[in-house]
Design a binder for these strands. Structure first.
Lengths: 296, 296
DNA sequence: TTTTATGTTTGTCATGGACAAATGGTTGAC
DNA sequence: GTCAACCATTTGTCCATGACAAACATAAAA
């Protein structure tokens, strides 16, 4: 049983939204605890996550919030069919390791792939595909939370290790990486860093959850050229756009803002003065643009 | 002018809290826009940030939310004066690096100390003291969020790197490390891991925020001997005790439970069937106890 | 000194109404 | 057929006020 704050954390849907959906569409239908507060059963939270997925894919709430779980799964399958071709064997083998909790082999497999492919290709191809495979498995209920955490931890170990062995002290541009306060997921930051560091950029990550004002202060105090923000799929797109505009006003024009991640798909138009990073490769492109503009 | 969502992002105070303070204490006093929505002037947002600082230092809202800006500044000054005795020079030098955002030197300094002292001594002495020094500086307002994040990230890099270079696959005991869902801080886990790995324990961390049921599943599926939980000072002690009891009922008796961290100071008595880890050194002691009991 | 009981304080949740911004579809001009 | 302008719906966020449990402090008892 989850209270409304927990559901907000888990689904990325605001408390207000959850209450208004209940009123308008008749879903979710939480029980009540002794105190009269909403208590959401786990199945409803999972269904809400499905709905979230469909909304991100462009469906409208009125079409999906009332629907049955079966219909939702059908719709997701239908929309996923095109890009689903390619959960190839390597990913499948890998998922098996995750499901068996073979953490040592997990790590050494990742490490091996990294060595074979080099950091950038490893991240932009292998890790990118693995994340998708993991995400899909999770949606299908084939993985549980602990297995996803295990993967995430091992990947983090491998990436941090690899990034740490590049030394780019003193080089340019200086890039500050972080996320907004409500964002929990830091893997995107690490992946971005992994793409940029081999190009000779000087990346400094603050991890997740830095308040806007502190991002500003750090950007100025640390003499940064670029501030890069990451938004996971769970982050409300609207808040992301709003926050980015605000940050754009806070930091001096001389400092560029980059923003990337699943939450920003298709939002480029609304973001003036901000370079939206559309893919991991695009981060390298953006770095090239900066270099062209600043050769002197 | 900030709307209420922006102020929430900036100050970390929830919309509900902002509205209820206005009602109860007569501050803040936002203007209204054409739509009747609250519009906070920048000065009030800054004052709210001051108030936030005082609350973090232990003041109570009723004492500070109504006060004048001058009084607030005076109070902050007053609280900063004491407890200044015991920050030795090495820590002070180190803090200077943090304050200057010298992330590269920060990392190499940590790395050097680690090499000189060895992983265990580094963690149980140096890091322990640094954490305290950072905490105190933070209370005094000498550090901001971004600086604390910077320290935490660099330390994490160094620790993960060091832990990764010990290979203890296949050894015993197998220890699962993680935290409860509401816990945000993962440094404690890393520090514990750093104490245990050199002793030959096989540590697997799931990172923070694993639901109880998933901890149970992972513990059983991964064939673990011990499950270790970490609780930062910010975690409500009562919830920790409650959750630990519940977890004790979920996992088989054959699997030991260890629990440590600031939130558990003085709570040993209430925790039957759980080994409370009172310090980083004590983790090593507890490991010795397990070995004595399981030599065969 | 430590534990237990008793008031206060404080953050979060509930309800139901309102509205602006976003979206989808339709019409008419080029 | 494409594009722009228009209108109707949809949708998320905000508001006001009331309520209450958990956290906290303080006083009394062991």
């Amino acid at each position: 049983m989850f209270n409304i704050a927990a559901v907000e954390r888990d689904t990325g849907l605001s408390k207000d939204t959850l209450r208004v959906w209940e009123r308008r569409y008749g879903f979710p239908t939480p029980m009540r605890d002794d105190n009269g507060d909403r208590a959401y059963p786990i199945e409803q939270v999972e269904k809400l996550r499905l709905i979230r997925r469909l909304l991100d894919m462009g469906k409208r709430p009125s079409k999906v919030v009332g629907a049955s779980t079966e219909d939702l799964l059908r719709e997701i399958d239908a929309l996923q069919a095109p890009c689903e071709t390619d959960i190839a064997e390597p990913e499948d083998d890998f998922l098996r390791l995750v499901r068996l909790h073979r953490s040592d082999e997990l790590r050494s497999t990742l490490q091996q792939m990294l060595l074979k492919q080099g950091l950038q290709r490893f991240v932009s191809e292998t890790v990118d595909r693995l994340n998708i495979a993991i995400g899909q498995s999770w949606m299908r209920g084939e993985l549980d939370v602990s297995e996803e955490h295990l993967y995430s931890e091992q990947l983090q170990n491998v990436l941090r290790n690899a990034i740490g062995s590049h030394s780019s002290a003193g080089s340019r541009p200086r890039i500050l990486l972080t996320t907004f306060p409500e964002e929990q997921h830091g893997l995107g930051l690490l992946m971005a860093e992994a793409m940029l560091v081999p190009e000779g950029a000087c990346c400094i990550s603050l991890g997740v959850q830095t308040p806007l004002a502190d991002i500003r202060n750090a950007a100025i105090a640390g003499n940064f050229d670029i501030v890069a923000l990451s938004f996971s799929g769970a982050y409300p797109a609207r808040q992301a756009v709003e926050g980015l505009k605000q940050l754009r006003n806070l930091v001096p024009d001389g400092i560029l803002l980059w923003a990337g991640g699943a939450a920003l798909q298709g939002k480029q138009s609304r973001l003036e003065g901000i370079r939206v990073i559309t893919s991991l490769q695009d981060a390298v492109t953006a770095l090239g643009e900066w270099r062209t503009a600043h050769q002197s």
